[in-house]
Amino acid sequence: MRQRIRYLSSPPSFVSFAAVGGREEGQGPLGPCFDHLDPSDRFGQTSWERAEGEMGRIALNFALKKASLSPQQLSVLFAGDLQNQCVASSGGLYSFGIPYIGLYGACSTCTEGLLSLSVWLSEQADRQDVMGAAVTTSHNCAAERQFRQPIEYGGQRPPSAQWTATAAGAFILGSREGDVRITEVCPGKIVDGEISDATNMGAAMAPAAVDTLLTYMQQSGRAPSSFDAIVTGDLGAVGTSLLQEMLLEEGIDVRQNHLDCGNLLFDSERQDVHSGGSGCGCSASVLATHILPALMRAEMKDVLFLSTGALMSTSSVQQGEHIFGIAPLIRIQRF
């Protein structure tokens, strides 16, 4: 069988990370853990699109400041967002002057970036102290405008709909040894769940997460119970129950330690998010505010992290095409 897991010979470590969020993210259970929150969601900008880019800039600035680094010390930057042609990342991050590789993986961008960056750094491990960053942002208003309706348009969302997070996460990784490292990566396959309903993204992405997790468990020979947490990106309530059931039927029980960022970022009791959070900033900010701090404090030691993405465009949805899912995976370990 084709080997999908890549074991990183010299696993890069997390040097620093930061998360930025909007008002709703601040009101959620992880609100106090964000580095920067803007209750106006505007981040001092004149458009939602610019705000999305600015969030990435602020997040990377915080991550640099926390580790007392200057942009010149980073040799590569992997970044992506939810806007057409990834303009939020290019517009927001150009001022750093870091060599840049733009990514598009829909809501899976955070893991896609960390996967690419960790492989990049692992290749250079013979040289001391090579560092790079991965930045992911999404903005609710920019996404609503691009994918759905004008923001002021009055409409009801069905219970399966998810809420695009106004959030960004920035991660700086280095080739030197550290406590928390990315040790294994496993890219996702493009999976067709034959869904064309854009208001049920969890259902469109769950089969991709199932595919990646099944492959990972088979090829690594590990059981779900050997991890402190198996964290999916933004399956939401609907996608989570689909994932758990489908994995159980394959003999893999993740119900004990499965977490979903879409369920963690917002409080579904107090916040009208319906099925949960989504958007590439969702998994990025939950990783930076919840998962990585837990690894740093040694509350967790071994985590599988897979952001899930729904690959589609407004045209593809209107033309009735299927919404493909993808779920790249990284294994984060504490040493």
Binding site: R23, E24, D41, W48, I151, E152
Partner: peptide, 8 residues
């Protein structure tokens, strides 16, 4: 100017 949508 546009106001962001609110859920809480």
């Amino acid at each position: 100017r546009g106001q962001p949508k609110r859920i809480s």
